[in-house]
């Protein structure tokens, strides 16, 4: 029984990080309707950013998130500005498909550039939190995971506050719901897209900072998370922030608890079974809006 509880705790903690990564994807998709296949590559960029900040400045990994965030905002902003925006402007009707092709291509370019720049070495950072464990009632809870989870929850609350309560946040929500109407309200839609993309990559920066104390960094590391993120986003409801986070927790739980009962090679299939079942019952995802 303890083993199952331990697995559930771990599933929730890890699921929080899956959720955070998926929230970023969901935000970008929800607002700009961009299916970003380069998401994993951007996570990798975020991980390397955090890695280099930690290596060069030797700051606390959680502090590095703020520094990385500043850089990554502009990275995301200009990623959208330089690569995706021209396509949205030029191809009004077929842009969705072209953007998928474009982001897939960019993923390969970014990953291979990282391979050239940083080599294929696996890197890890030994921080003050690495390998630290809290023993609570016979359960081992890994410190960096718990901290990462708590901060993820805080970050998502902040993001929701930003979207709900601030001027630009409202503009983002308005644009995500009806781009044309938003433009007629005087909102510069392309600016909203750029800022949203920037916010999305900032979130990835935080996810990277939460992962780094117990994870490894490698040009292909994004591949481990990206497939899962797409499942989570659809499960949670396209464009829903809370839904994506909830989806992350569910996938984390299934993965961790499921593996205690069946072979972990089968757990992936289990995730997809739950995923399909969810879509049959609620085609719009857990917290998605009904289409009008």
């Amino acid at each position: 029984m303890t083993g199952i509880i331990e697995a559930a705790v771990n599933g929730i903690l890890m699921g929080g990080l899956y959720g955070l990564i998926a929230v970023s994807l969901s935000l970008i998709f929800g607002v700009a309707k961009i299916v970003n296949f380069a998401h994993g590559a951007l996570l990798m960029v975020a991980l390397f950013t955090v890695y280099w900040i930690l290596e060069l400045l030797k700051v606390d990994p959680y502090l590095s998130a703020l520094l990385a965030g500043c850089f990554l905002f502009f990275f995301g902003y200009y990623f959208q500005r330089l690569f995706i925006e021209p396509i949205l402007k030029r191809e009004k009707d077929t842009a969705a498909l072209t953007v998928i092709l474009l982001t897939s291509g960019l993923m390969l370019i970014i990953e291979n550039s990282a391979l050239l720049l940083f080599g294929a070495d696996y890197r890890t950072v030994r921080t003050a939190y690495t390998g630290k464990v809290w023993e609570v009632a016979g359960l081992y809870i890994m410190q960096p995971r718990l901290i990462g989870f708590v901060l993820s929850v805080v970050l998502i609350r902040l993001l929701e506050f930003y979207l709900r309560r601030t001027n630009f946040g409202r503009a983002i929500r308005a644009t995500s719901q009806d781009r044309e109407a938003a433009r007629l309200m005087g909102i510069d839609d392309y600016r909203v897209y750029k800022v949203t993309f920037g916010i999305g990559t900032v979130i990835l920066g935080f996810a990277a900072a939460f992962l780094t104390p117990f994870y490894f960094i490698h040009p292909a590391v994004g591949d481990l998370f990206v497939g899962k993120s797409f499942v989570i986003v659809v499960l949670g409801g396209l464009g829903s922030i809370t839904g994506a986070f909830l989806g992350g927790l569910i996938v984390g739980l299934i993965e961790s608890v499921g593996a205690q009962f069946i072979n972990s090679a089968m757990v992936e299939s289990l995730i997809f079974i739950v995923f399909i079942a969810c879509l049959v019952i609620r085609p719009m995802g857990l917290l998605g809006k009904e289409r009008e």
């Binding site: 961790s256 593996a259 072979n263 090679a265 757990v267 992936e268």
Partner: peptide, 21 residues
């Protein structure tokens, strides 16, 4: 214990917990 985990597994904790049990 006979546990094959899929390639590209992001979190090894479930496997290790199973090992522990």
């Amino acid at each position: 214990l006979d546990e094959g985990y899929p390639p590209k597994t992001a979190d090894m904790t479930p496997v290790v917990l199973k090992m522990k049990r």
